[in-house]
Design a protein around this nucleic acid. Structure first.
Lengths: 121, 121
DNA sequence: TCAACATCTCATGAATCGTTGAGATGACGA
DNA sequence: TCGTCATCTCAACGATTCATGAGATGTTGA
């Protein structure tokens, strides 16, 4: 359950183009993630100090996780935290009137395992 | 379907405490929204110029909609755009491996009308 | 038309954020 | 141990963002 401070840090981290692209890259990269160097190469060859700065911001915001493997540091997406952001935004959206946020939730294109009939469990 | 530029603007708009609180207030306020003055009063009595500045940023980012009613301007949450943000972040998260983002999606507490068994429709 | 009200616009200074380059750290293989 | 590679840390500069207060705009009812 994310609190306001965490949500604020996460949104600030995502409001920078390169960081947003990093997160999206890591989301598609799966749970194993990618080494910092490979991420930098995918970001139009961004400098190592630039990558280090932005990856640190993302890690601080809890959006990515770092793990050392030999000389490389692998970064991976923190899926639960990403999902927690929406939860934070939409919390209490229904207020007893599901029709209000119905269309919003319907807009989500990735529902891997939707809770059947669940409503604010 | 949100593009990168729109997502960036939305995240930037949400990365300021007062704006995040405004959005959450409007999300719970329902589709009719609230007049600017009432929102300002709920924000610890923020000045009108401050409210105007931040509401304009939120409207520019597409996160809230404005509608004039007499002397007041009512602001309401743009639910589809809010949901579109997650969609943008998590797009292509599965890559054929639903188990990857399963726990993430399960973290969502508001599922007003979950699509039954849908998976990247 | 006038007064009262709700809200917006603009200019200014302060604070924050991002980029850059040089150098430091830590890990691997010879 | 030494050289190399991957990554991080730090300080300085420029750009962007925020808060504030004065004044402008648009709406309503008399």
């Amino acid at each position: 359950m994310i609190d306001e401070k965490q949500a604020l840090e996460a949104f600030a981290a995502l409001s920078q183009e390169i960081r947003l692209r990093i997160v999206r890259l890591l989301v598609t990269a799966g749970p194993e993630g990618m080494p910092a160097g490979a991420i930098g190469a995918a970001m139009d060859g961004a400098s190592s100090s630039k990558m280090s700065f932005h990856l640190a911001q993302l890690e601080q915001a809890g959006l990515v996780a770092a793990r050392r493997d030999g000389r490389s540091i692998f970064y991976s997406a923190a899926y639960p935290r990403l999902a927690g952001l929406v939860d934070f935004l939409m919390r209490d959206c229904c207020q007893g009137h599901p029709a209000v946020c119905d269309p919003a939730v319907a807009a989500l294109s990735c529902r891997c395992e939707p809770a059947k009939g669940a409503h604010r469990e």
